[in-house]
Design a protein around this nucleic acid. Structure first.
Lengths: 97, 97
DNA sequence: ATATTTGGTTTATTCTATAAACTACTTTAT
DNA sequence: ATAAAGTAGTTTATAGAATAAACCAAATAT
């Protein structure tokens, strides 16, 4: 039998995992904040945020602040659950029996 | 400042991480055993084993057993170290502050 | 006015992962 | 002895993901 649980491909990506990890503790964060904390480029971040949004793992709200566009991201219940499942799964890889 | 450490791309792959995780506890394992435990296809396994070998994370020995080819894999010191570094890094993602 | 900066998105390219096809040989059945 | 099926892999072709580069729209600074 197979020893290793599937790792949700949506979360098993350095950038997307960073984003979700951030949103787990920060709950609501804006584009620029996430960009700085993750060290990603804006282009890549834009793409990956939309993937997480398409999957229903986060919600994206677009507003304006001081005349500038402001993109705010928030983790959903689904995203939180998926993160928990991922964490449980990867522990099976990094704590070998 | 950036919050997340780089995840070694060689180890941040479901199959390659499974392989290394296996070899950490099993030390020496043959192709078929790894194939079964990881649930991978032979083709994919062949490719990923060579990548790990090229990186010096494992050694691959080719012999014969009962007339059949036998491919045996073993983790190196370098591979072990890389795994430890990876484990430390990913913990920064899955245990959010 | 025009150059630069902010806050992004879209597009094009490179890199990865995977399956499918293939190689080489062995065993078993006829 | 030959054909069919099985073992143990490798190579190749393709689909998907990650990334950088180019672009857009508006705001601010010179």
């Amino acid at each position: 039998m197979i020893e290793f649980e599937e790792l949700d491909p949506l979360l098993h990506s350095q950038l997307r995992l960073s984003i979700i990890s951030l949103l787990v503790s920060q709950s609501e964060s804006d584009f620029v904040f996430i960009k700085e904390k993750t060290g990603s480029t804006a282009g890549n971040l834009s793409v990956q945020l939309n993937k997480l949004s398409d999957a229903g793992y986060i919600t994206i709200r677009k507003t304006f602040k001081n005349n500038y566009p402001l993109t705010t991201c928030k983790i959903t219940q689904k995203g939180l659950k998926a993160f928990e499942v991922y964490v449980t799964a990867i522990k099976g890889y990094i704590n070998p029996k």
